Each structure stands twice: as structure tokens, then as C-alpha cells.
Simulated assay, not measured.
Amino acid sequence: MKLITTTLALGVLACAATAQTSVQSCNRTVTFDAPPQAAVSNDVNLTEMMLVLGLTDHMVGYTGISGWNKLDAEMTAGVAALPELSEQYPSKEVLIGADADFYFAGWNYGMRVGGEVTPETLAPFGIQVYELTESCSHISETDAASMDDMYNDLRNLGAIFGVPERAEALIAGYQEELAGFLTDLPALDAAPRVFVYDSGEDAPFTAGLYAMPNALIEAAGGTNIMNDFEKSWGTVGWEAVVARDPQVIVIVNYGEVTAEEKRNFMRSNPAFAEIDAVKNDRFVVLEYVEATPGPRNIAAVKTLAAAFRAQ
């Protein structure tokens, strides 16, 4: 009887050790036989998702940060033990050379449609890919961006790396923190009209229906004036911005042109003089890592919600 019991126990342990995990990644179902041991993440926001889940011991590096962004002290400490394998998007050779077995990226977050690095091009080298949920609109039909997109990525990463309880605890904590903050705020008489100014002077690059700022603005009680722009991020005409007369302008801060320079450009251009947000100097700055899907979306909603209610 003891021998039978022991044999059964060993069998259960063996099954548990080889249990497969499947998650939905855009329009693909991806199956993992075991947690990845040589992961690479692209971009500051995706890398921070790995950090908050405590997954650095499963990583061999990160890519796509210093080419566009500067790490703050918290992020610098978090990735101190990891090399940046590429300052911008990695080549296939970079990932293969790192002996990576997993790449956490997204469409226009480390991969381009039809580009050199995609789930299909990496598969022959044993590198599995999980795609950022918010980026799926580039390759398939999706709903409008939602806070649930970020929670979904944390949940799926938790499943992939065998730490589902850790992921669920994080998600529950974020949801509770945000709900408590919003409950204590005064109600808005009406949703303020909001424009997201990422970059560009001849024509602005902005957030459409499928970009994370659309979800952040709605969660904070506002309305993205470009929520009928059925794209993630893209370029629109200034005429449309002027016609829709935003009451608040959200500036995304990153790259060589500072947030203050973007604000000054709008305030000094006579074409924008009658825009409500410009007349009343109602500008809000979000860092890139806050405006893209990741743990700092909670702070971003708080910043926006407070700004929408400021006198």
C-alpha cells in the first residue's frame, strides 16, 4: 500500500511539473510547457510589468528603452541586474544571441506588422511571444482600450510564469486603490473634452479609440475627443482638434521634445488661441510609462481625475 501511495504521489508531482499553460495572445492561443527561463521584454512599460510580478530571475535582458526614454530611479534599480540588449527594437539576431526563450512585446511595442521580429519569425528558434493586449488592434478586431487590458496582461504573465496568485493580488490591489480614490472625489457636472498630444507640429500624433489614454481618460471621468478615431495611435489634422475644442490637453512626455516645449508650442500658436484648454492653460503631463499599458496607469488615472476636477 505504501509503495502504491508513493507511486501515485510521484505521478501527481510529475504531472504537475509538466502541466501546460495556455493563454490568449491577440488572435493566437499560446501554450507553455513550463515557465520561461530566459525572457526578454521590450519597452519601459512592458518591462515594468515583469518587475512588479517579480520575474527578473526569469529574464536575460530587456530592449527598447534608452532609445526613447530615460529610466527613473525606481526602474533603474529594478533592472540593475539585467542588460539592455538593444536601445530600440531588437533584431532577430539580438534575441537569438541572448538565448531567449520568451519575448514580451507588442505591435509597435517591439514588433512591426510584416517586420523581421514577429511570433512567426521567432518560433523556429524556440522563442515564444506574448503580445501586449492593447496592441492587438493592429492585427485583429478589438474593443476599445480598457483598464482591463493591463489587468489581462498581468494575469496572463502570471499564468505563463507560474505566479497566478501574485498576479491576482496585484490586480485586486490596483482595482481597490483606484476605486477608493475615485469614490472620494467630487462628481463631475459633465465629462470634460480631452485631447492627447503626443508629438508633431505640422500634424499631431494622438491617441485614438484603441490606445490606452482613451481608457485612462474615461476611467478618470473625461471623454477623449478622438474616440471616434478607430486606431491606436495615429496622426490627425489640427483642424479637427480646433473644431472639437478640448477643455483639457494631456501631453505625453518622452523623447527629445519636452512636455514644456509642446505646451509652449500650443500656447504660442495663434491657430490654437481659442481652444478652451489653451485659453485656460489646462494642460496635464503624463510620462510615457504612465500613458502606455502598465502598472503606472493607476497613477495616471489619479492625475487625470484630479486635473479634471481642478478649478
Rank of each mutant, 00 (worst) to 15 (best):
R263N: 09
D276Y: 01
N264A: 15
A277E: 10
M266N: 05
I251P: 07
P270W: 02
V252H: 02
K262P: 02
R244Q: 15
A299G: 13
A243T: 06
M266A: 07
I298P: 06
A291N: 08
A299D: 14
K279S: 03
K262L: 00
F272P: 01
Y254C: 15
Y254V: 11
A273Q: 01
E260C: 09
A291W: 12
E260D: 14
Q247E: 15
M266V: 13
V252N: 05
L286W: 12
Q247R: 05
I249Q: 08
V301W: 08
D276E: 13
V252D: 08
N264D: 13
E261R: 08
R244G: 13
E274K: 09
D276H: 11
K279E: 02
V284T: 07
F272L: 00
I275G: 00
E290V: 10
P293T: 12
G294H: 08
A300D: 12
G255F: 02
V250K: 02
A300S: 13
L286Q: 04
A243Q: 11
P270T: 05
A273D: 01
V252S: 05
V252G: 02
A271N: 13
R263H: 08
T292A: 14
V257W: 00
D276I: 04
Y288P: 11
N280A: 05
I249E: 03
A299V: 13
R244H: 14
N269I: 00
V257I: 11
E274Y: 00
A271M: 05
P246E: 10
P293K: 11
A299E: 15
D276C: 04
R263C: 06
P295V: 06
A277K: 07
I298S: 08
T292S: 14
Y254H: 14
A291R: 09
R267W: 10
